[in-house]
Design a protein around this nucleic acid. Sequence first.
DNA 1: ATGTCCGTACATTACGGA
Length: 260
Amino acid sequence: MRFATWNVNSVRQRLGLVTDWLSRNSPDLLLLQEIKCETAQFPAGAFQEAGYDSVVVGQKSYNGVAILSRVPATLRHRHLPGLEAPEGGEHHARYVEIEAGGIVFGNLYLPNGNSGGADGYQAKLRWMDALIAHARDMLASDTDFVLAGDYNVAPTDEDFATGALSADDALVRPETRERFRALQWLGLTDAVRAVTPRGPVYTFWDYQAGCWPRDRGLRIDHAMLSPRVAERLLSAVPDRMERDKPQPSDHVPVVVTLAD
DNA sequence: ATGTCCGTACATTACGGA
């Protein structure tokens, strides 16, 4: 079983890159974030031609998540259980969860937390609290699961290049990192770090300031594995070369292989 | 020191978000 997570920064702008990547890699599942379109605008037909079914949770302009699958998949949730919708509004399109091959896959796009002032940051922390509670519930029910996506968290100082972030950035503040560690203390395994314990393993390079040619990256896209899934972990690596393509996303796919 | 890209709308440029 092989799956990948990829923040594509507009699926319509990146359709050719995604279908090309699928044809070269043929994962069982591809978890997409920041599709930046409404569900009805998602190019499901193009992915169907490539052999993939789509489960889409979209919204206008921002956010949006989808799971492409070439194996049978069952929808479980269209938003993060236990999370309140914003005051007087709809849920942001930031979470979709399916079951495939005996494993639950939660695909998440965590709030960045740098916009909207203190309220925006608190919303990020509440989102993380709900994610921790959901992971705890799934562990309590003995469910095998993966929680993967754009966490907008650089868990340690090894996870960003010097000068790439300020110390008070929402991606690295102590309260952010404390919550990421809480997922680990529950017993979840950070797949990329389990395979590559030390040093830079970036998944994102900003479009600005020549971050890619200077390798000023961040490691913010993660796949967290429940214990029995972690025992099957064979590899977990970002596909760096995807950042070098014309008009790329600022994130690259992170590819995880599990023993069957 | 600075360097970008996406989608939207009171649209042909400005803006928020990342």
